[in-house]
Computed example of a mutant assay.
Amino acid sequence: MPNLVESTLVESLLSALQEEQLVSISTVDFETGGPNVSALSWIYASDETTIHLAVTAKSRIVQNIENNNHVVVTLYANESVYSIHTTANVQEKEADQLPLKLALITLKIKEVRDVMFYGAKICVEPRFEKTYDKEAAKKLDQQVMRLLKNLK
């Protein structure tokens, strides 16, 4: 059975990306031209064609996107693995609405591909735990997500 390919997020993936998720994003490294993979959780899908994310303003991700705007988000959800191909735009290099200097990035979805290998499923989706001050982490997460939810 071939893996599914869509041009937008299906409802279950949209819902998954409207909650805190651990994802990886792949960019093209601006110096080497090779792949650059990073893990992040500040991500929010505003609709079936648009994803917003926040990264540290000094992150290599920002320079990579400015040089080559092709970005792939890897999402573990619905017992499978999805590769979400996008084009990216750095909306703000340093959002001043937060105590931490973050860049705000908008991703426009071009293709969503189920990339799980044949005859298998994800039994337990990846989970993570913040290891710094839990109250500070919760407050910052809420601020960042509120900002991402209000991006156009």
Score class of each variant (00 low, 15 high):
3 N>Y: 05
5 V>A: 05
5 V>E: 05
6 E>A: 06
9 L>C: 05
11 E>Y: 05
11 E>F: 02
13 L>S: 04
13 L>W: 05
14 L>N: 12
15 S>G: 12
19 E>N: 09
21 Q>K: 09
21 Q>R: 10
27 T>L: 11
28 V>S: 13
29 D>H: 09
30 F>M: 15
30 F>Q: 11
31 E>R: 08
34 G>L: 15
34 G>F: 13
34 G>H: 15
34 G>E: 15
36 N>I: 10
37 V>G: 14
38 S>A: 15
38 S>E: 11
42 W>G: 02
43 I>H: 00
44 Y>M: 03
44 Y>P: 02
46 S>Q: 03
46 S>G: 05
50 T>V: 09
50 T>Q: 13
52 H>M: 03
52 H>L: 03
53 L>G: 02
54 A>R: 01
55 V>G: 02
55 V>Q: 06
56 T>G: 14
60 R>Y: 05
60 R>D: 07
63 Q>F: 12
63 Q>C: 06
65 I>P: 00
65 I>A: 01
65 I>V: 02
67 N>T: 11
67 N>I: 03
68 N>W: 06
69 N>M: 12
69 N>V: 10
72 V>G: 01
73 V>G: 01
73 V>K: 01
78 N>S: 09
82 Y>N: 07
83 S>V: 01
91 Q>R: 11
91 Q>G: 07
92 E>F: 02
93 K>T: 14
94 E>Q: 05
99 P>F: 10
99 P>G: 13
100 L>T: 07
100 L>D: 10
102 L>F: 11
102 L>E: 15
108 K>H: 08
109 I>T: 09
109 I>A: 06
110 K>Q: 14
118 Y>I: 12
118 Y>M: 11
120 A>M: 09
120 A>W: 09
121 K>F: 13
124 V>G: 07
124 V>T: 07
126 P>A: 10
127 R>W: 05
130 K>L: 09
131 T>F: 10
132 Y>I: 11
133 D>T: 13
134 K>L: 08
135 E>P: 08
140 L>S: 08
141 D>E: 03
141 D>V: 01
142 Q>H: 04
143 Q>I: 01
146 R>N: 15
147 L>E: 04
148 L>Q: 02
148 L>A: 04
149 K>A: 10
150 N>Q: 11
152 K>W: 11
